[in-house]
Nucleic acid binder design. Sequence first.
RNA 1: GCCCAGAUGGCGGAAUCGGUAGACGCGUUGGUCUCAAACACCAAUAACUUCACGGUUGUGCCGGUUCGACCCCGGCUCUGGGUACCA
Length: 1154
Amino acid sequence: MDYQFKDIEKKWQRFWADHQTFKAADKTTKPKYYVLDMFPYPSGAGLHVGHPLGYIASDIFSRYKRLKGFNVLHPMGYDSFGLPAEQYAIQTGQHPAITTEANIATYRRQLDQIGFSFDWSREVRTSSPDYYKWTQWIFMQLFNSWYNKDADKAEPISQLVAHFEKNGSAGINAVCDEEILSFTADEWKAKSTNEQLAELLKYRLTYLRESTVNWCPALGTVLANDEVKDGFSERGGFPVEQKKMMQWSMRITAYADRLLKGLDTIDWPEPLKEMQRNWIGKSVGALVKFKVSPLENGIGQDEVIEVFTTRADTIFGTTFLVIAPEHELVSTLTTAEQKAAIEAYIAQAKKKSELERMADAKTVSGAFTGSYAINPVNGEKVQVWIADYVLAGYGTGAVMAVPSGDQRDYLFAKQFNLPIIPIIDIQKIDNEADPTKEGHYINSGFINGLTYKEATAAVIAKLEELGAGKAKVNFRMRDAIFGRQRYWGEPVPVYFKDGLPHLIKESELPLLLPEVDKYLPTESGEPPLARAEGWKYEGARNNSIGNKSAKHAGEEASNEAHLTGAYRETADPRYYELLKKFSLENRKNPTEAENILWQLLRKDQTGFKIRRQHAIGLYIADFVCLQKGLVIELDGNHHKLNKEADDERTEALNYFGFDVIRITNEEVLSNANDVFEKIKEKLAILEDRELSPTQPSPVGRALKKVSPTGGDLEGAIYDYELSTMPGWAGSSWYWYRYMDAQNQNEFASKEAIEYWKDVDLYIGGSEHATGHLLYSRFWNKFLKDLGLVVEEEPFKKLINQGMIQGVSQKIHISTAGKSNMNLIDGLPVHTQNTETFLMSSDRRAEMDSNESNATKILYNTTEHNVDIRFVDSKTNELNIREYIKWRPEYENSIFWCSGGYWHKNEFHEFENSNGEKRFFTKPEVEKMSKSKFNVVNPDDLIERYGADTLRMYEMFLGPLEQSKPWNTNGIEGVFKFLRKFWRLFHDDAWNFNVSTAEPTKAELKSLHKIIRKVEEDIERFSFNTSVSSFMIAINELTDLKCNKKSILQDLVIILSPYAPHICEELWVMLGNDAGTLSYAPYPKFNPQYLIEDEYAYPISINGKTKMNLNISLSLEPKEIEAAVMANADVNKYLDGKTPKKVIVVKGRIVNIVA
RNA sequence: GCCCAGAUGGCGGAAUCGGUAGACGCGUUGGUCUCAAACACCAAUAACUUCACGGUUGUGCCGGUUCGACCCCGGCUCUGGGUACCA
């Protein structure tokens, strides 16, 4: 039978699934090999041909390693939390879990039909509670750890507490916040629990702090630095602004040095390592303190400006200081005369958006504060300026400006006429700064005459002696923000009590993601999780609730409230005592109006319970009916509030779900009964308020329940953290889960981790360079510090597969729509109000190069993408009929070619034209994407050629690591190759026909050439060249008419990683057991078969090859030279000249210098 | 601006250690088969030149090292990626 790829592929895919052929063993004597693909996000768009590229490479490698006798772990799963599903949920109301599920199904179907050898029994999904339980668990370990710089590793926070109890804060060398307290052991013990917790938060590896974040209003979330491009969100391209928010952060900076050093130990592409190095941004320099020269009024006394510099050696060239506009000393240092200028500058700098600042990078701006600082090494007074080229977030937010050595300082000095002092003898500073480190110092006090190295050491020593500075290493990398104001992510296993974060119990994991009515922030800007009803942590009840999920605890609480009818309201606990005091005082001293109204409202006279002076959030309502959610406010002399404040109260109360009616004191005093009736009416029409006493406060999340008149409800319910973890949380440890995916007790067992250790080969895109790949290394190092994993680096060898771009087809369409064209005397002519025209690319090019600008303007067109289905990829000819079906608005349009035009399916030829009748589009390489209509779907190709052809063709395209445009044109060549391979096993009538005869020398040579070649190629990940070699081998064997079983069987094994389906089929036809091919031993290369007696030496004269000469390989160079010189043809080329020299490289070449 | 990677026929690419540049595939051209088309098969295919044998040029550009350079060195140009007032 001919090669029936469809049946074969289906059959074997089912066989592999049914027999779990690729299940990795847990206990084995085989050496392990772990091949991993970067975690895919299952997007709704499905796969295009670019996606499987890396998977095919890793699959070939995995299959190859199995043949080589390794126990291979090659898993696949889904990074299934993330923005696209959530965006879709917002638009459609569809739960992201459902969308995700559907996307995964599509993804899986597409993966399966390519024939990957994944061990699906280990599949993981980050959005599954079984999985994110452990993401939350790792978060808890981070929370419970601090970084001990002396030990250079993370340690349990309990060790830190033990130290505090014994020695106080002395002797601790930690990576922590800047504002830590100093205390003795006794002082520590005297602190309240909350004070202690607040202090410990400054040390924890995951901690809360107010950070300036990239806030994207359109997405309603905070973005990581690498998710922001040029002031816009990478996803969606929405504007991003800076905003201060309380955020969870990860103290990745603790690991900065180890992350940097580790790069030298791993086999990754150099550009990728370089990106990480830049991102970490280590700079070695010094911290220098400049004392502020006090003003006449004494202001600035004792103030010090700290600067960071990498060129301490240039300190004598400092002619002014520049501090960031946001620097904390700006207001202190600004003199009265300069105040206006400084304020104006700050206002202007604030207004500038990120984008404008970037566009503006060349213009120099700044303002003088009026103050001076003193250079510690020479006592000179220098001016202190502010300028936005100094960034508040880097170093100390202040620089010592050395205009002779730093270009930005130089431009600044020129702009504002500040002095420029040369400090190195060979410095050339006439036109620009010269940052040289060569030469000897001048104008530099005690370092005059020294060289760079000597000077740097001398300056730092001097600074230390003066107490004015010290050597310091600075990192560009910032701690990573670890919260997203989003729904579709892991909940943070934290609740708040007294405004402080506490972990839930380990036994309560996973903290399930609650259901919400909408996937949007609340009206007050709280994250979507604030919408979850009854989603609260119930502290005191925990013991009785036991292991039940926290969501259940919340439900129970609200059920109970229903039973008792207890409508209760939340007061802000931070102000609870104060609020209680005020409300009691108010109650004791009511105004006259209040008193009158209270007599009418009390004791259920309205039919409902009314409370007075009751705290809600930060406010004390005059009267409130909690059941109906009605607040009655008395305005007048009592409150002395202006209208604005009243409105604010109303808004806040509305937010809590209350209606507010306002009554003036006069109304009550003049006619109390009318007011009473009005209130009764209002109460009658209002529905009962929903029993969800859980709305968060806009003033703070740390709410707890208090009774209406005060008094803490014991066993209170606490708020959970409402933000969720960022996308990188789940992917920062997933490779460990694959080692032991079903484990219910640990994220992975010790045995599994000790066996699999790390990823031997990791394949994926370089877009993860500063995100996933950095965070993963960070978490891995942390887990290692805790003794949970064994390797310092998780990904030993990494390969970036290149991007596959699409080829778009562009069409030129008249700009102004139906206004530009008419047909006059059979020629398209520009007039008004007629038809659109479309221009063939050759016509457009012709017009652009030959005709006047006026014509070009007249026939102005814009480029539009055409679906590539309507274009012949070889000729770029557009199928106009099909195109019109797709875009019916162009049904009556004119399709203008170089030799005429098409109109309503008729071609009108121009007179005397020899131009084209065909309508061409313009191909252009760009990103493959649905919106560009240039997506090539692997499903279509598999339908036409089969998975084996697709796999081999993707590899054949070119080097794995190189980016390249997809072009389907060559795929037939690969298909032909497979068919030719199939043919080797069959006679002319397609009957299976294999001979058991002994192979010939030539056949063995072909076989062993390919065995060695493929082995070498796979080991260096050069898959494209091995496909070529297969073609050569099959061509050779076809020429030899080889159908020897011993040759073909080995060939089946070595080809099977590339084209597994056809090989499985042939393997069985050759008489082997089904399913044994995947673990067959790789054929052993025998160099004996390649030994030659003769070699066709290329003979070159002066380096130019002229001819080949067969010479025995046993001859030595001298003999070869003699043989060559004796040859008649060689002498013909020499044309009588005597050679000056003859170079002979045995087995390589002969070169005659004439 | 800085850092990194790359540039080879009409196209994708090969040349693994400084040793025959253009393997393999696509496309194109010619041929066989066919009533015809498709498929399949055979042959040619870097450019220039020559009826042909052959000759000349040729791996982005300029120069160097070497018996010999796509490969090593120096200086540029262009393309792609990363990154940015980082002190």
